[in-house]
Design a protein around this nucleic acid. Structure first.
Lengths: 246, 246
DNA sequence: CGCATAATTGACAATATTCAACTGCGGTGG
DNA sequence: CCACCGCAGTTGAATATTGTCAATTATGCG
């Protein structure tokens, strides 16, 4: 995976074409972007950028998963975002990265040097418009996650995370989520803990508890089956159709 | 306060002129906005909009404070934002409000009906650009707040909130924050609790604890003095110059 | 001055964390 | 080929922190 063939791929066949920051661009605009884009790949576990570092480029996630997180001096860390294919990394108009970005799986980014991208943005309203839309969505997601962090119990937090991952996996395969669906957990217990503001032991206990109640089934440590979607959603504490966070 | 004179005020003398969504507009663009704007006022405690309601207008906070919050079925609520003068309410391109907005103090909004505003945005890049910038800032703030909610202790949470309010109050008066500064607490203990993901009793206890240690002094329940700013920042758990959240 | 609301404080309970031991799985090398 | 090593995950027991329930005290407003 992550082979060099990405470098020669033209935007028309790009898997994130319809969802990324370039989604609204016209063919001629795409051509311009094509001319200044380049791909970068990162292996699972590699850092993409550290908080405070100068950002030379902005980028879109083409494939793989990255995390956005923050760490305190004493080592406590909080994940503040999960970056999936089509998500945008970087900030036109700011030099230093505000958070750490780390590749969780092997990762491919479609990059643009910052200055040329900013220039292009000025001339191309479709980019700014799309970026605004994506940013507003991210803001809503972040705010919804604040409810999870601030007010939910450990059990509700775990259920909320699983519900999100289930929805995401379903939308990735372009099917509605359904009873009996299963998906791969992309995160370790520790990463889950960092996302949920818990310790990894508490995560482990609550996953076991949900398993014991039959709300989820596990095949190995990483594959999850949801026999009854409604039962899972009930465990999140949200009402019937909990918001599709992130 | 909130008198009708706002209605005839022209944009040039507007107190949030340099920070709001219109900050980058040219005189002719301001004139156009002027033609479609109208002011609305809300008394302290009044709802501005409920989550799920159709949004007929977008607006900027001109004066006063509002909260943005989310409530679960069983009554647990989490504040997800504090809206101060110049902050923007609403979302071009979305019909339903994602969160509850409530006036905490008497509040004046500069409103635009949604459709005309969206039309104007299409013709006026300065608005979209400014809104993108503001939204990206809000997103960073929301993510920084996630660290507070997910990883900080009750004492650190209180200190973090006080530090933010101190910084804000200072910037409102265009002075750098300094030792011995004091400001008015705009929030009840319950509102603080909803912001911090705590109970009001825990808030009360931790405020008392900080008072006992001499980190803060109280004149009455609502006026706070910070004798030693660095001591407060140390209590937040952040490093030297904790990020200027929100 | 009195009432309603906001805030404080105490005692106890619930929840999550900490520290520690242990299990199971996958990969490596003898 | 299999034993061993290391890591991710699980589980247990004790502890700490925060929440809950209840009583009491301020505060500000009419």
């Amino acid at each position: 995976m992550n082979d060099i063939s990405f470098n020669t791929r033209d935007c028309g066949s790009c898997p994130i074409r319809h969802r990324a920051v370039c989604a609204r661009c016209q063919p001629d605009e795409l051509e311009q972007l094509d001319a200044i884009k380049y791909y970068r790949t990162f292996e699972a576990g590699q850092p993409v950028i550290w908080s405070g570092d100068p950002m030379e480029f902005v980028s879109s996630v083409v494939s793989g998963i990255a995390t956005l997180s923050q760490t305190m001096e004493d080592g406590r860390t909080q994940m503040v975002g999960l970056l999936l294919p089509s998500d945008f990394i970087g900030r036109p108009g700011r030099d230093a990265a505000p958070f750490d970005v780390v590749a969780v799986t092997d990762l491919t980014l479609c990059c643009f040097r910052k200055k040329p991208f900013e220039d292009m943005m000025e001339k191309t309203p479709a980019i700014g418009t799309r970026l605004l839309q994506m940013t507003l969505d991210e803001l809503d997601s972040a705010r919804e996650w604040m409810l999870v962090l601030g007010r939910k119990t450990a059990r509700e937090k775990i259920a909320s995370l699983l519900a999100i991952l289930a929805r995401r996996d379903a939308s990735l395969h372009k099917k509605p989520p359904r009873d009996g669906m299963s998906f791969e957990l992309p995160l370790t217990r520790e990463a889950m803990a960092d996302y949920l503001g818990l310790t990894l032991e508490t995560v482990s206990r609550q996953v076991s508890a949900l398993k014991k109640t039959g709300v989820v089934e596990l095949q190995g440590k990483r594959r999850v089956t949801i026999p009854d979607l409604q039962a899972l959603i009930t465990e999140t504490g949200d009402d019937v159709d909990g918001a599709p966070i992130v």
